[in-house]
Design a binder for these strands. Structure first.
Lengths: 219, 219
DNA sequence: CTTTTAGTTTAGGTAAAACTAAAAATTATT
DNA sequence: AATAATTTTTAGTTTTACCTAAACTAAAAG
C-alpha cells in the first residue's frame, strides 16, 4: 500500500462522496473541495497517473477500483476516529468531524485495526453511518426518515444526517440521541411535522426539516 | 494560536531536541531533519519570519520564546499519544514513535486535553520521559543510569532511552518494564555489566551498553 | 600569513498544490 | 444552425519544500 498526500486523499474522499464509483464533474468536485476548477484539473491529472481515477476530458472523473478501495479505507478511519472521539473522549457529535478529518490521514493499518478492536469493532459511527469493514464490505445504511412512520408506531432513532451544528444543537436541546425510542403520536397533514412521545411521557414536536435528517427503525 | 505546517513543526521539534533554547548549527539540524544544509538555510529563514527562531548567519539557529513554547506543545502531544498507543491500544514501546510523529501534528487544544484527561493526566510517557504540562512546566527527568547504583541496593526502573528497536527487543526478551524492581547483586569491575535479581528470584545480567540506557531510582 | 578544509549560504531547478486570466469545448437558447 | 452561456482546460504565477552545484566564511594547518 503506497502512501498518499493529504490533498490526494481529500480528492479521493470527495469523489467517493459525490459519486461513489460513478463519474463526477470537474465543477462539482471543485465545489466540494473548495478549490478552483483549474486546480482540480491538475489534481485529477496527478491522481490518474497513480491509477486512482480515470479522466475523460470535459466529461468527468471516475474512481478506479484502487480509488474506491482507498476511499473506503479513508472513510473507515474517519468513522472509527469519530467513534473514538465521541465514545471514549466524550466529544459532542457536532465537534468531531473536523478532528476526524485530520486523524483520518494518519497512515498505519495496525493503528486502525487496534483502534477498531478497542472500540469493539463497531459497524456504525456515532451518527449511525456505516463503517466500511477491513475487507471493503459496507454495513447496511440504517433506518428511514421519521416521516415514513405512521401514527401509532414505536420507533428507535438509529441515524442522523450531518446537517450542520445548529441541527446538532437542536438535537441536544431536545435530548435526542441514537438508540432513543419514541411513540409516533401524530403527523401533521399541514406542515408534515411529527409529534413523538418519549418513554418518560414527555412529548416533543419535530419540524419537517428536523425529520428528514433523523432516521429510525420500528422497535 | 496560529497553525503551522508539518515541516515547520518538525524543524521546531528538532531544534528543541538538539539544543533546547541554545543555538544549533545548520549542519546538526540538517542531519537531524534528514535534509541538505541548503534546505535548512531556507527553512529557518521562513521560521525566523514567523518569530519562532533567531538566525545568525554562519553561526547558528536558536528558538525564540514562542519557538520553545511551540516545541513543548508538540512534545506534549507526542508523548500523550505515545501513552495512548501503549496504555490504551497495547502497542509495544518500540512501535509507537513513528505513529506519534504523525499524531502530534493534529491541531486541537481540546483534543489534547481530553486525551490527557482520559489517560489520567500522566506526567511521564511509556518510556518514562516527562510530558510537558499545559502551562509549559516540565515534570522531573526521572532516575539515574543503572551503573550508578551500588551492590545491595533495591532499585525501580523508571525510564529507558529510545536507543533503537534492537534495544527494545532486548528489554522485551528480558521482560524488563517500567516499574519493575530488582536487587543489585553485583557490578562487574571488568566490563561494568550489572547483575540484577528480580522479586521472582530470577537473575539477569545487563551489559554496560544496556545499563546506560536504563534509568532507575532506589526503591 | 597563506592555504586548506569544514561548514554555510546563494543561485537555480523540480514537484506539489493552490491561484488568475484567457482560450477552448460543451451545452443551452433562440 | 448559429449564437449565447456555461463549463473545462491551458498557460502562466505563487508558495512550500526539497534538491545540486557553486561560492563564500571561518577557523585550523602548514
Amino acid at each position: 500500500m503506497k502512501t498518499h498526500t493529504e490533498s490526494e486523499e481529500n480528492y479521493i474522499k470527495a469523489l467517493y462522496h459525490l459519486g461513489g464509483d460513478n463519474p463526477v464533474s470537474n465543477g462539482d468536485l471543485a465545489h466540494r473541495i473548495g478549490a478552483k476548477g483549474s486546480s482540480v484539473t491538475q489534481a485529477v491529472k496527478r491522481l490518474s497517473q497513480k491509477n486512482l481515477v480515470t479522466v475523460v476530458p470535459y466529461k468527468g472523473v471516475q474512481l478506479t477500483e484502487d480509488g474506491v478501495q482507498l476511499a473506503k479505507s479513508i472513510l473507515r478511519k474517519h468513522r472509527l476516529w469519530e467513534t473514538f472521539l465521541v465514545d471514549t473522549l466524550g466529544f459532542g457529535w457536532d465537534q468531531v468531524h473536523p478532528l476526524a478529518e485530520q486523524l483520518e490521514h494518519v497512515q498505519s493499518e495496525e493503528l486502525v485495526e487496534r483502534l477498531s478492536n478497542f472500540l469493539g469493532a463497531p459497524k456504525h459511527d456515532p451518527h449511525g453511518d456505516p463503517i466500511p469493514q477491513p475487507n471493503g464490505q459496507m454495513p447496511p445504511v440504517l433506518g428511514e426518515p421519521l416521516g415514513a412512520f405512521a401514527k401509532g408506531h414505536t420507533i428507535k432513532v438509529v441515524r442522523v444526517e450531518d446537517a450542520g451544528s445548529e441541527f446538532f444543537d437542536q438535537l441536544d436541546a431536545m435530548n435526542i440521541n441514537l438508540g432513543n425510542t419514541y411513540d409516533v403520536e401524530a403527523i401533521s397533514s399541514f406542515d408534515a411535522s411529527v409529534q413523538l412521545k418519549a418513554p418518560s411521557g414527555h412529548t416533543i414536536w419535530l419540524s419537517h426539516s428536523m425529520c428528514v435528517n433523523i432516521y429510525a427503525v420500528s422497535a
